[in-house]
Design a protein around this nucleic acid. Structure first.
Lengths: 359, 359
DNA sequence: CTGAAAGCGCTTACAG
DNA sequence: CTGAAAGCGCTTACAG
């Protein structure tokens, strides 16, 4: 029973059916301006009768607002971004905004395209977790065109006028190392994605912009080790790619040293899972023979034995704060001042960390 | 150095600067129609000079296409939907479509609003993981208005004209039970969200529509038990809410029976994590004293000891298939026939299942 | 409170 | 290949 589908009725059709002008029909349907109650009812009845729905494109073209924000992430399937995204939607949807989502797969070119398209679709603003924090020219360009941008999780080099909501990753990693130092560890290893950035991080520079969170965490590790008066031993810095197997290998290498670390910090949840497996396969008792610290409170960290000590990031809040900040930019007080929110992570001490075994 | 920002330049401005008509400027910029190479260059130069960007709203209003699809899920933070969503974006973005995302929190009212707004924004189609598979009136309404819909993960009652892409959950659960039966188990328990649907499932009905995946899985369990000639023992059906603690409690209750199950199937990944913890806390050796089967290949399932036997759902593919199907509906062969794709899950046998201990 | 008219920024026939 | 004109479906001053 496929009925012939007429073109979607427009305001003109509704107005005609209700015997009013399109201006009046628009006022009744759009909830703006003044309309007599009786008139409104007649219009609404006609609209319902015809199956009318507002054309949001036409409305947006006139009002200059789409009630839509863009969200650009590197990987929605990553629980970190999925959770932050949930935070964004939970704040933004009740305020009457929709979310246009783009996944970049960490490719700057894809990010550039996404920003362009979103800008052409006239989103009211964009939240972006940059693919490459060192490359922000296209973001600056968008800002110059009048698109408000809030950076999520990564500060980007060369983008002065964007707000940002990030986690204090340097302090988070330093806290974890401090915990291990306090337990008496002196040879503390790290499994990290940012091993290749080591030279730059050891320099005097203290910029946050342009660095991936993993690099900032590595700097926190270096800082804490240095603050304790210990030498930085590059042999304790295990480089890995962003996957479990690579972290597994890096951990095995660290443990194979003549003088292996008694504790290891992993700068990420995925890396931690690889390190945990490596410790398991090596038959090391945790925490006696090896203490381990990871990032993110994922389900597995409390299912394994011992439970994993972790740095808990306020991931959901990261999203809500970014959403709220963007809404403020769009609607309310456009005081113009650029805001950089930095949230604190929390060390959750569990069974995988303890004093090193006496030797 | 805040320069005064002029209103975004329009095609008229570009045309004037290039000394051509708006029609020609539009053709040069939009890549449609015929334009002489020299003319095109002049127009592009003028556009670049002025910082012109196409107004997608105006374009969409005329062309009747927004190159945007809606995706409606209950919870983006759930790894299942996050992964499926990634599948959708990976298919749809390269084809030139953007994704408008809505999170419903399983509330039908939120879903209704999301569909309405998306429809008003004139998305070209919508993929929806229904909040309540039993309630589909608003979806049917949208379809009648001309919005193509592809159902994801859940068939919905009363929505005849929507395509669907789902997983064969009944077969998946039945396979898991068959595996346990083959190992020699006779008292097989189940921890499920759908315990309250039991009466309806035991009836003769064989509809898939209107049921949550958990309910379909429970039916698979019932079918497999019945097919083996065993009695359904309602005492072996542990009801839980959708959280780890509730599953933990349900498992503890099952294990406290005089005649406890020797194996347990969990109809979901979250429930499985609770059941695993319960088995751990009870000090039960797996698989000897208890065999356990879960759903979804989450990281934790290979980090715990023993590793968990699971039913692996093709979650990412669920998204890619739904995306592709919707694109087909929108662009290509609108043959009109409604398509129901059902993907098969795969049992991954690992250490948590084995023959029951002799007693 | 209501309406006639203008206009948002494009694309699309239609002529040339 | 190019342009003048119409039109997509709304909202917004402006009058009354």
């Amino acid at each position: 029973m496929t009925t012939h589908r007429a073109a979607s009725p427009s305001l003109i059709d509704v107005a005609r059916a209700a015997g009013v002008s399109t201006a009046t029909a628009g006022r009744a349907l759009g909830g703006y301006g003044q309309v007599r109650a009786g008139t409104r009812e007649r219009v609404l009845a006609a609209a319902a009768e015809l199956g009318y729905r507002t054309n949001g494109l036409a409305r947006s073209m006139i009002t200059g607002s789409t009630q839509t924000i863009g969200v650009v992430v590197t990987d929605v399937a990553n629980p970190f971004f999925a959770t932050a995204l949930r935070g964004v939607t939970d704040v933004v949807q009740p305020a009457g905004f929709e979310v246009l989502l783009a996944n970049t797969g960490s490719a700057v070119e894809a990010e550039r395209r996404a920003i362009t398209v979103m800008s052409e679709k006239r989103v009211d603003g964009v939240i972006v977790a940059a693919a490459q924090p060192s490359q922000g020219a296209h973001l600056k360009h968008a800002i110059d065109l009048g698109v408000p941008i809030v950076l999520l999780d990564r500060q980007v080099a060369g983008v002065a006028d964007a707000d940002s909501v990030t986690i204090d990753n340097e302090q988070a990693a330093a806290d974890a190392v401090a915990h291990l130092l306090e337990l008496g560890h002196r040879r503390i290893g790290v499994v990290t994605e940012a091993g290749d950035r080591l030279a730059g991080l050891r320099g005097a520079g203290n910029r946050r912009k342009g660095l991936f969170p993993s690099a900032v965490r590595l700097r926190g590790y270096l800082r804490a080790i240095g603050a304790a008066g210990l030498e930085i031993d590059e042999g304790l810095i295990g480089s890995a790619r962003y996957d479990r197997d690579s972290a597994y290998d890096a951990t095995i290498r660290l443990l194979a040293r003549d003088d292996p670390p008694t504790a290891i910090l992993c700068t990420d949840n995925v890396l931690a899972s690889g390190a945990f497996r490596a410790a398991q396969d090596r038959g090391l008792r945790m925490p006696d023979q090896l203490s381990l610290v990871g990032f993110d409170d994922e389900p597995w960290t409390t299912l394994v034995r011992p439970e994993l000590t972790i740095v808990e990031q306020p991931t959901y809040d990261l999203g809500t704060r970014a959403g709220r900040r963007l809404l403020d930019r769009i609607t309310g007080a456009r005081d113009g001042r650029t805001v950089h929110v930095q949230l604190q992570a929390k060390l959750l001490v569990r069974g995988s960390t303890g004093a090193p075994a006496a030797r």
